[in-house]
């Protein structure tokens, strides 16, 4: 760990907030993507016997 001196709080909080926001963005995007994929598969499965 580098010596951040008197600005340690500022630097660490900037990294903490940014990494948290990026991880949340990726996680939410992946969750929405998986749900959309599953929903489409279900509808396609249901609509196939009618085709």
């Amino acid at each position: 760990m580098p010596d951040l001196g008197k600005y340690a709080d500022a630097v660490l909080s900037a990294y903490g907030v940014s990494i948290l926001l990026l991880v949340l963005l990726v996680a939410l995007s992946l969750r929405q993507g998986k749900r959309a994929r599953r929903a489409l598969q279900d509808v396609e499965k249901r609509s196939k016997p009618n085709a």
Binding site: L4, K6, Y7, A8, A10, V11, A14, Y15
Partner: peptide, 11 residues
Amino acid sequence: QGSTVKIIYLH
């Protein structure tokens, strides 16, 4: 700017 310059990599 001391160690605050490290914020540049995100900002």
